[in-house]
């Protein structure tokens, strides 16, 4: 039963990733893109968790920790860059 559920969950996460990617391309302003990158990172954390269950390798959780950390640092870095005079959209 769990195999079927894992396949369904992979599919749902892929659809979510696709929607986030559409917003990443369309996003009218840079903060929109940063928000969608944030969402994509948290979807990938979910992906890694599901993959850890799928393969039975618990060490993959370290990857999830690192991805979450990088996503946070990216968001903070982008926000600082934008506040210190990024492109203005008046």
């Amino acid at each position: 039963m769990l195999d079927v559920v894992i396949n369904i969950v992979y599919f749902m996460l892929s659809v979510a990733l696709l929607f986030g990617f559409i917003r990443l391309i369309k996003g009218p302003s840079l903060p929109d893109r940063v928000v969608s990158l944030e969402l994509i990172a948290s979807i990938v954390v979910g992906y890694v968790g599901v993959h850890a269950i799928d393969t039975g390798v618990p060490s993959l959780l370290d990857v999830a920790i690192v991805i979450a950390l990088t996503a946070f640092l990216t968001a903070v870095g982008f926000a600082r860059f934008l506040e210190r005079g990024g492109p203005k959209s008046e």
Binding site: P28, L30, L82, E83, P87, K88
Partner: peptide
């Protein structure tokens, strides 16, 4: 990010 976006005038 919300703060930065607000100051950018989105």
């Amino acid at each position: 990010i919300g703060r930065a976006g607000y100051f950018l005038g989105t």
